[in-house]
């Protein structure tokens, strides 16, 4: 049913570019960036912060991302939240393979990005050895602000099509590195009517 069978490049990359397909492509990119459903892939500490990002204070739903899909088939973003052990690595890869194109990966936290402080026998030193990573969110764990920044960055990359260009260059993920945001959240901010 899907019009696209295998999305490696932009939605309609195979077609000749004219005004119409160009517009359609823009539209598709807009849709993809505004509706990127994350897969529920929580591993460790970062998963808690990832869920907190979905909570009322930070509200992932603003980006249309509250639809955490349990089934990898329906998910677009895999947020690798936490340390990946040697035992988990094959499972991670399997779930990545089960996701449908187009799919994006955010490596959340230093453990996922590089093994972090646990440079030892048990951990995979950097999840980019298993799956291509598009955005690295630093921090241990990255605060929700940092994760949001990673997500917004990813959305921008998708909408501008930059992500595909970068992927072609690197041959893997887009590999965008961010700085950790250290925003004071001490302000009592309550969202909503209450």
């Amino acid at each position: 049913m899907g019009i696209v069978a295998n999305v490696q490049a932009d939605g309609l990359a195979g077609l000749e570019h004219n005004f119409l397909t160009g517009r359609v492509e823009d539209l598709i990119r807009w849709a993809r960036s505004h509706s990127s459903w994350p897969a529920t892939f929580g591993l460790a500490c970062c998963a808690i912060e990832m869920m907190a990002t979905g909570g009322p204070h930070y509200d992932l739903a603003r980006f249309g991302m509250e639809v955490f899909r349990a089934s990898p088939r329906q998910a677009d973003i895999m947020i690798v939240a936490g340390r990946v052990s040697q035992k988990m690595a094959p499972v991670l890869r399997q779930i990545y393979d089960q996701m449908m194109e187009p799919k994006w990966v955010i490596s959340m936290g230093v453990c996922a990005s590089s093994g972090g402080m646990f440079n030892n026998y048990a951990l995979v030193q950097g999840v980019d050895t298993i799956v291509p990573v598009d955005v690295y969110a630093p921090g241990c764990p990255p605060g929700p602000e940092t994760l949001l920044q990673a997500i917004v960055t990813l959305h921008e990359l998708i909408e501008t099509g930059e992500i595909m260009r970068r992927r072609e260059v690197t041959g893997a993920g887009a590999g965008v590195h961010l700085d950790e945001l250290q925003l004071p959240t001490s302000s009592a901010l309550t969202i909503g009517t209450r």
Partner: peptide
């Protein structure tokens, strides 16, 4: 939002 979801799903790889 729903339109974006729908568009995205239509142009997603099928399995």
């Amino acid at each position: 939002q729903t339109i974006a979801d729908g568009m995205k799903l239509i142009f997603k790889e099928d399995l």
